[in-house]
């Protein structure tokens, strides 16, 4: 048992098709988390379109699927109108999330399909689209789902999924650097271990896999403070402190080429190597699938 996890969209902010991003991918955020009998997905960036096409290839005729949105920014919802399973009356899509301004995710998804933005009306989608409630004891197909409020303009949610002793966390669009307990530490001693509030460490503690936003290299961050994304080095420190086994860096910066992503990962690996209980660190890339068992 356990999970299969596949990356369908690993890019942050805006799709970046082209030869410079081919290896790690240019689609925006989407992660599939699957058990033997349940399909979950995190976020509906343009990668969600690819997931929909693959579900068709797999021959799914009647889906009862659960979609968890971290927040409502474009790069996390834009794929939804192109998600083929949403057009079939045989399917039910449960949508979860919280967005700023008191709106529901359901309202956000329908709003982006108003005629000024998109030719097909939300009401004309064939699938049953069901607002889901993020209750503290939510369980979907035997998967325990928990959430964490994160630091991002307008807010965002991190998710953890647990089943049969296995744990996968998805924490994107989270400016962890704003939550370091000693905010001056990185400038004073960049190599020193950064520490975080217990709530954050506990949320990802012991995860078999943490899929985490790590958009910025250290030298890039100073000019992007407050944009809602962390340094990769800070994410490495969280993963090490929390005893995470594997850390997948995602939400790649749209300005980063494949070579940049590899350089970023290498720097993060070097930092992880200096930490006790260091996690395995790698870059999420589209179509990469991991078995968590």
């Amino acid at each position: 048992m356990g999970f299969f996890v596949r990356f369908w969209g690993t890019r942050g902010s805006i799709p970046t098709p082209g030869s410079a991003t081919r290896r790690y991918g240019g689609n925006t955020a989407c992660l599939e988390v699957r058990t033997d009998d349940t399909v979950l997905a995190c976020d509906g960036g343009t990668g969600l379109r690819e997931l929909g096409l693959d579900l068709q290839r797999r021959g799914h005729r009647s889906l009862d699927m659960h979609l968890f949105f971290s927040h409502g920014h474009w790069d996390h919802i834009q794929g939804f109108p192109f998600f083929v399973p949403a057009y079939s009356a045989a399917n039910r899509l449960h949508v979860y999330g919280r967005v700023s301004g008191g709106r529901t995710v359901h309202a956000l998804l329908s709003g982006q399909m108003e005629s000024a933005y998109f030719p097909v009306r939300f009401a004309d989608l064939g699938a049953g689209i069901v607002p889901g409630e993020l209750t503290p004891d939510l369980s979907v197909g035997g998967v325990r789902v928990r959430t964490l409020e994160q630091n991002h303009p307008g807010g965002s949610l991190g998710y953890s999924f647990e089943r049969d002793g296995h744990k996968v966390c998805y924490c994107t669009d989270s400016e962890l650097d704003q939550q370091i307990e000693d905010p001056e530490l990185p400038a004073r001693d960049p190599a020193a271990q950064r520490s975080f509030p217990k709530e954050i460490v506990d949320f990802v503690a012991g995860a078999d896999l943490l899929v985490a936003d790590a958009q910025y290299m250290d030298h890039e961050y100073a000019r992007r403070v407050g944009w809602g994304h962390p340094r990769g080095s800070t994410v490495v420190d969280l993963a090490a402190a929390a005893g995470v086994r594997r850390l997948a860096l995602t939400h790649h910066d749209p300005m980063h080429t494949d070579e940049d992503v590899e350089a970023h990962v290498e720097a993060c690996r070097e930092r992880a190597a200096t930490r006790p209980g260091a996690p395995e660190v790698f870059a999420a890339r589209e179509w990469m699938e991991l078995k968590i068992a």
Binding site: R6, E280, M288, E289
Partner: peptide, 25 residues
Amino acid sequence: WLVTDLGSVNGLHLNGVRIHSALLH
């Protein structure tokens, strides 16, 4: 080309990362 592990004993590692499947570049 998509490569998929068929439940091998020693696993499948892509650029050092154990995977279940991946597109190749």
